[in-house]
Design a binder for these strands. Sequence first.
DNA 1: TGTTCACTGGGCAATGTGTTTAGCCGTACG
DNA 2: CGTACGGCTAAACACATTGCCCAGTGAACA
Lengths: 156, 156
Amino acid sequence: MAIDHLDGRIILLLAREPRIGVLEMSRRLGVARGTVQARLDRLQSNGVIRGFGPEVDPAALGYPVTAFATLQIRQGQGADVRAHLAGVPEVLELHTTTGTGDMMCRLVARSNADLQRVIDRVVGFDGIVRASTAIVMENPVPLRIIPLVEQAALGE
Amino acid sequence: MAIDHLDGRIILLLAREPRIGVLEMSRRLGVARGTVQARLDRLQSNGVIRGFGPEVDPAALGYPVTAFATLQIRQGQGADVRAHLAGVPEVLELHTTTGTGDMMCRLVARSNADLQRVIDRVVGFDGIVRASTAIVMENPVPLRIIPLVEQAALGE
DNA sequence: TGTTCACTGGGCAATGTGTTTAGCCGTACG
DNA sequence: CGTACGGCTAAACACATTGCCCAGTGAACA
């Protein structure tokens, strides 16, 4: 579960040049091909590397507006609300949280006007008592993992 | 910028089996290899597909706790705060938003106790006036893009 | 001491890649 | 009405990479 320095370098290399092959990696890292292959297999079966899915940009798909919505749920309706939200394509992510809200989700929309439609669809469900939305203006730090990988690879 | 049905199928296929090659894709989709190659190149230069970086699970790396923090920033300190937060490895993501808070970030930590350390580090900066944190308990809908791709591919 | 494990370095056949070619077809445009 | 263009197909080629095998080595450990 803990990763060592070589694992870290493999992930970092993969993050920088995803299309790179195992052979080229072994050359760059100065280790045998079999080693890289074994490490990669282990990282994947460990669950450290979940996959290599394409990173799709919602904005390029025509959904340039992102927002976060905090939802308050009627007691005992949690499961229904989850199923409802999972059925809305514009809901990219959903978490249940502690704090003032009960759930928090990430939404995208085609425009600010379209966001209204999305929100209506999200909250137009019986189990949801209240929603408060924050529209994202800028994204100074896009979702990243590399600094954490570096930390984990060095620290351990 | 808009994607058609074939683009959608390529992305979907890639999302399901990321390690698949261009040749195998062309076989499954029933089109020529050159077509798939051309589409993929276009999707990437379009920015629709940003890359194929490995998806790393913070939990498997030893950071099982996720939280969202809403930050209030002292006027005019935005740039400094961004730089500060970008330097914290446990800050996975940062947005500036409308609404009650000025910024919103996603944090990870090794434990609830460790989260305290992370938050202290995050808010231990002059430009940050106030922070309120919501700890994630469950993640019923992990970050996803496929439903949106399907929608974009069919609707357009 | 003996065993296990990770890594090395090599070899092999099979497969995929990058790239180019030519031909086909529908469409937009002069 | 004809033509030029863009997207797709199909095939070819040299080349690199993959998946898989093996034997040997060194370190950790019982």
